[in-house]
């Protein structure tokens, strides 16, 4: 089963929750960081990296000997990645989405394949027990979805019998949606502040049409206002855990430590949360 930890607003505690679930999960579990722009889960789970795989996409390489400057490629390309001007053809590989259209449509067979690096996938083992997979976007690379797609397409096979915990990117646009698309349950981490509340409502709007069970974790409880709770009640969203607003928690986090291991009470709380989510995912998976 797959549990995705997401949020609208960044910095609400997605990674804190994912890391704490990973160390308290009942049974084998794999932790996957799909926030490829800014992956952070490894900073807390600290896996020993055993392999780094470079991920690329196919971009065009034109053989000017064969090119007839017919413009078919440039007219098809929706991303301004290939241009023909008179008797000159230019490619802009950083604009290319890797759809392969230019290669397929060229009547002269003049467009071959080269690659652009999207980033890497790091694999490792935390605590000799928890397999960790991290997608890491190359700095300067604009497109995160194809790298995320690569990680997602392999994670089920790699996990085997283990459950999968996904640390999703922030926001509610395409990358966040694709990170939760495979999950059996979505955990939304929010905070009871005006920013947290507003972005949470966006996230609920975005994820509801997926028809997956959703559970809410309220972080920094006691800070701000109460509207997050009212919205959850109205939408029938269960608040499955609260993490109190405490300075010692923020300091613990700043040391790169896992919140579930701060004290026995938090450990028990995350243990219970893990069991609740596993139950929800089981039901969601059968639904």
């Amino acid at each position: 089963m797959i549990v995705a930890v997401a949020s609208g607003k960044g910095g609400t505690g997605k990674t804190t929750v994912t890391a704490s679930l990973a160390v308290t999960w009942p049974g084998p579990v794999m932790a996957v960081d799909l926030d490829v722009d800014e992956p952070n889960l490894h900073l807390f789970l600290k896996p020993d990296i055993s392999g780094i795989e470079t991920v690329t996409i196919e971009v065009p390489e034109v053989d000017e000997e064969k090119c007839t400057y017919c413009r078919a490629c440039a007219e098809l390309c929706q991303f301004k990645a290939i241009a023909v001007m008179g008797k000159a053809i230019m490619t802009f590989p950083e604009m290319c989405h890797g759809c392969g259209g230019c290669m397929a449509i060229c009547p002269a067979g003049a467009i071959g394949v080269t690659t652009r690096e999207l980033g890497v996938v790091e694999r490792g083992l935390a605590r000799d027990l928890i397999p960790c997979v991290t997608g890491r976007l190359r700095i300067g690379e604009a497109m995160s979805p194809p790298l995320m797609r690569h990680v997602r397409s392999h994670m089920r096979a790699e996990a085997g019998d283990a459950d999968i915990l996904i640390d999703a990117p922030p926001g509610v646009s395409c990358p966040a949606m694709s990170a939760v698309a495979d999950s059996d349950v979505i955990v939304l981490v929010t905070e009871p502040t005006p920013f947290g509340y507003y972005d949470f409502t966006l996230a609920v709007e975005a994820f509801t049409p997926l028809g997956k069970p959703m559970a809410v974790v309220v972080n920094r409880a006691g800070l701000g206002d109460e509207r997050v709770y009212g919205f959850c009640a109205e939408r029938g969203l269960p608040v499955v855990a609260e993490i109190p607003y405490r300075r010692d928690i923020a300091e613990h986090y700043s040391k790169g430590l896992v919140l579930a291991e701060l004290d026995g009470e938090l450990s028990a709380r995350f243990g219970a949360l893990s069991r609740t989510l596993k139950e929800m995912a089981k039901e969601g998976g059968h639904a």
Partner: peptide, 10 residues
């Protein structure tokens, strides 16, 4: 700006 380092930030 937006969080991250991808397309919207670039």
């Amino acid at each position: 700006g937006a969080p991250g380092i991808g397309c919207p930030v670039i």
